[in-house]
Design a protein around this nucleic acid. Structure first.
Length: 274
DNA sequence: ACAGGAACCTGATAGC
DNA sequence: TGCTATCAGGTTCCTG
């Protein structure tokens, strides 16, 4: 479900509400979601601690506590993290409930239960391989045209697969990759090293643009995604190709194609993207 | 290096 | 109406 713009929106809509709150208790309804340490230790480590801040790296959320511990959360496909004010705990997919000392709750809900949670000190974060190996973030100083061009040049795989790789760029997922390729006018099955300089620069700009737009619109809600206040995003109203199979391309009128590429449902305009 | 498939899960929806 | 197949915003692991 959530890609960088969705996870960042969750962070922004949550950080001010929970900073300074003490975690009075943790109700772990589904212990197997806790990947490190044991669910029992997880609960002991964070109960009674105060939340310092909420950060994000790629698609990971990092909840900093006042005892040097960091609760790391990955929402995977259907995870949702949101603030519930009046003990309104009616979510049927509620999996982990953080009870706050002010009487409110920070709720982790997850339909497919693929999400993962950890509690670690900063020097233990290397254990989360996906977090430790993240590439640069779009819109960051580390993500430069030269960096992307260099990666493209030495990669022989399909451009779609490359962009889904979190080691290459942190935070892109299936929706935003399709959208970035649409904006750049590039076919998802192009080999990465076949892009010329101008195409690489178009792709670079498209990635930054689509991520910035996604954040500005509060993320894309197709089904499950909600922000930290339980609200939907609106970027689904701005998508060019994703979810538009057989509909007409806004630019040329051709029918949008959906095809499996790199193991994922992939949408593109066969006329505009080459 | 890379491709493809399976695995981890549950539920909505499309099709018959 | 009801049953079945397919698909889903992600990541990791295994095989070829």
């Amino acid at each position: 479900m959530p890609e960088l713009p969705e996870v960042e929106t969750v962070r922004r809509t949550l950080v001010d509400k929970i900073t300074g709150c003490q975690i009075k208790n943790v109700d772990i309804k589904l212990p197997r979601l806790i990947k490190w340490p044991s669910a029992h230790e997880f609960k002991a480590l964070i109960t009674g601690r105060t939340i310092i801040t909420l950060a994000r790296h790629g698609k990971y959320l990092l909840l900093y506590l006042d005892n040097e511990m960091i609760v790391v959360i990955h929402l995977r496909m259907t995870g949702r993290l949101y603030y519930v004010s009046t003990a309104d705990l009616t979510d049927q997919f509620s999996r982990i409930v953080f009870e706050l000392s002010n009487g409110d709750h920070l709720l982790y809900a997850d339909t497919r239960t693929l999400g993962t949670l950890y509690a670690m000190r900063p020097d233990e974060l290397w254990r989360i391989s996906g977090l430790a190996s993240l590439g640069p973030e779009p819109l960051s100083p580390e993500f430069t045209k030269e960096y992307l061009a260099g990666i493209l040049h030495k990669s022989k795989g399909k451009i779609k697969a490359l962009l889904l790789n979190q080691k290459v760029v942190a935070g892109l997922g299936n929706i935003y990759v399709d959208e970035a390729l649409a904006i750049a006018g590039l076919h998802p099955e192009r080999t990465a090293n076949s892009l010329n300089r101008a195409e690489a620069e178009r792709l670079y700009s498209a990635i930054n643009q689509v991520i910035a737009d996604g954040i500005a619109h509060g993320g894309t809600t197709f089904r499950d995604y909600r922000d930290g206040a339980g609200k939907s995003g609106s970027h689904q109203n701005h998508l060019r190709v994703y979810g538009r199979k057989d509909l007409h391309c806004y630019q040329c009128g051709a029918q949008i194609v959906k095809k499996e590429v790199a193991g994922r449902g992939t949408h593109f305009c066969p006329h505009c993207q080459r």
